[in-house]
Design a protein around this nucleic acid. Structure first.
Length: 545
RNA sequence: GCGCCUGUAGCUCAGUUGGAUAGAGCAUCUGCCUUCUAAGCAGGUUGUCGGGAGUUCGAAUCUCUCCAGGCGCGCCA
């Protein structure tokens, strides 16, 4: 009715209203809800947006709504203020749901796999891996919170050329340690760690590999070294707060014939051809710049072939959605990987690859080239020792994966006290402290406030805080849909800020019983929400600082 | 050369998919601890949103172009 009248007055012919939005304005002072409808109608109505807004408002029936006031503002926004009593309902809701507050059924239990880090097992984890670990783990936790059934997986690249080089390096070190004058391979791994490893081999097995046939000798040395390396990687990640559901071996794909089988499948579909003695995948059909070798002329499958088989295997394990976190240096691999999935009749859109820009290391004002072979890099372990797990994780999570991170360890050390993670943790500790204080003063902090008492939470600082608490489910939904966990880091910083503001302007432990009970409940709810978000981010929520 | 990413305050970075006066932290200046944790709060200062053009009522956001930086373009992984 109102719509029709307004339409007439504006001389609109079209039945269809433009796609306007009704949303919370960025600036709180503008009101609780705002719409851009009037500005969108300028073209159709051929009138100034503010005039249109007037007509819309004159025809709007606001009886029986929660709109308490409205205004036309700026270029033609219509702002509404709502009766805010509903905000207070968030407190009992948070307290009732506890750890589950913020969890959604967005994913409807769909199986999702997040594969991340998957670092070469020939060395230690470095800064780039740290970024991947922080991002992947919190993304997985975020998706789980949003209602997906999430599995974390680490793909172990324990096959291929690099392992061959690794084997040659180990072999040379082993023989050298036993006094044999053998040259070290040119493309070998120079780190001291390999020498230490072969020393342990010698301690346990002596020199019995010397006379062994070289292929077997290399195989045994590699097996020993890999097992050692992977154990270290696992422990390091555990200490970083990351634990995987599955550790998947590339070598197993070679041994089981799964790669061969996958190649045959591609061949049957007509996506493979032979050239110069090698087998090629027609990746140009899928937008790639050039075709890719799957099997070398020496008969050995490439890393790409193994990776196709690996991803096929993911789908065969029942994942509806597969997310990979790769370093930006693997960018060229994306199109052909998706193409290969399409060739195997999987929906390429269900394979999501998050490219993470590299972490550049700065030392003494200069960029340090990181390389495993040269043995020059800062490890995840060192990072944790220097700045701690929480600060390290928050540092990475706070940043968009698309931005290159410059990391200056000296700066990180000196500034670790300034890491915003402490701002959030401090808020949590402060909240805990208030609850402790309440008990010490003989109050029960766990009293359930009545609806009447909750209406006492009416100060501006309280409303802002309540609003933020109520935002969590929406934030989770948005962050999960966009697969952007860094949004939650921003959210929890905002929340901590609102709490600190509240804390400095309002007292919790007041004499008035009703107000005190309501505020204590607000404190508990705030504490819960901060803890829930920090849980997703893999950051601890300390009770004291 | 081609492809992808980035360029926002002195520094490190956000910016909810095109909205209102572009925001945080660090740095800096001024206030606030006899009351729940000052690792905090309140306020001040700081901007050609890399440059230019276009689309739009409206652009940091979309399009084009130029500039600068990063990464990739192997029968490596």
């Amino acid at each position: 009715m109102a719509k029709a009248r307004a339409k007439k007055e504006l001389n609109l012919e079209s039945e269809q209203l433009p796609a306007f939005v009704l949303e919370e304005p960025r600036e709180r002072q503008h009101g609780d809800l705002a719409t851009n409808l009037a500005m969108l109608l300028t073209k159709q109505a051929k009138r100034a947006p503010r005039d249109i807004a007037k007509i819309i408002l004159a025809n709007l029936d606001m009886e029986k709504t929660r709109i308490t006031s409205y205004a036309i503002a700026g270029p033609g926004f219509i702002n509404f203020r709502l009766d805010s009593s509903w905000l207070q309902d968030v407190v009992p809701e948070v307290l009732a749901k506890g750890k589950k507050y913020g969890s959604l059924n967005l994913g409807r239990g769909e199986k999702v796999q997040v594969e991340f880090v998957s670092a070469n097992p020939t060395g230690l984890l470095h800064m780039g891996n740290a970024r991947g670990a922080a991002l992947g783990d919190s993304l997985a936790a975020l998706l789980a919170m949003a209602g997906y059934e999430v599995e974390r997986e680490f793909y172990i690249n324990d096959a291929g050329n690099q392992i061959y080089n690794f084997a040659l390096s180990l072999e040379a070190r082993y023989l050298q340690q036993l006094g044999h004058d053998v040259p070290f391979p040119e493309t070998g791994y120079h780190g001291q760690d390999l020498i230490d490893t072969v020393k342990r081999v010698i301690e346990q097995e002596g020199d019995k590999y010397v006379l062994m046939e070289e292929e077997l000798r290399r195989k045994l040395l590699v097996r020993y070294a890999l097992q050692e390396k992977i154990t270290i990687i696992k422990e390091t990640l555990e200490d970083f707060g990351v634990s995987y559901d599955v550790w998947f071996s590339e070598q197993s794909l070679h041994e089981s014939g799964y790669i061969q089988d996958t190649l045959r499948k591609l061949e049957n579909q007509g996506y493979i051809y032979g050239k110069e003695g090698a087998l090629w995948f027609k990746s140009t059909l899928f937008g790639d710049e050039k075709d890719e070798v799957l099997k070398r002329s020496n008969g050995v499958p490439t890393y790409f072939a193994a990776d196709i088989a690996y991803h096929r295997n993911k789908y065969e394990r029942g994942f509806k959605r597969v997310i990979n976190i790769w370093g930006a240096d693997h960018h060229g691999h994306v199109a052909r990987m998706k193409g290969a999935m399409q060739a195997l009749r999987y929906d390429p859109a269900s394979l999501q690859i998050i490219l993470m820009q590299l972490v550049r290391l700065i030392q003494d004002g200069e960029i340090v080239k990181m390389s495993k072979r040269s043995g020059q890099y800062i490890t995840l372990r060192e990072l944790m020792d220097e700045v701690g797990k929480d600060a390290a994780r928050f540092f990475f999570i706070l940043r968009d994966p698309d931005s290159t991170v410059e990391f200056d360890l000296d700066l990180a050390k000196s500034q670790s006290a300034d890491n915003p993670v402490y701002y959030v943790q401090y808020a949590h500790a402060r909240l805990c402290s208030i609850l402790r204080q309440a008990e010490e003063q003989g109050y029960d902090p766990n009293l359930t406030p009545t609806k009447q008492q909750l209406t006492l939470l009416s100060a501006q600082e309280e409303k802002d805080l309540l609003k933020k608490l109520a935002d969590l489910p929406g934030e989770i939904a948005l962050a999960a849909n966009l697969t952007e966990p860094h949004r939650l880091a921003r959210y929890v910083l905002d929340l901590a800020s609102l709490f600190h503001t509240f804390y400095n302007s309002q007292r919790v432990l007041v004499d008035d019983e009703g107000l005190r009970t309501a505020r204590l409940a607000l404190i508990r709810a705030t504490k819960q929400v901060i803890a829930n978000v920090l849980m997703i981010l893999g950051v601890s929520a300390p009770e004291r600082m």
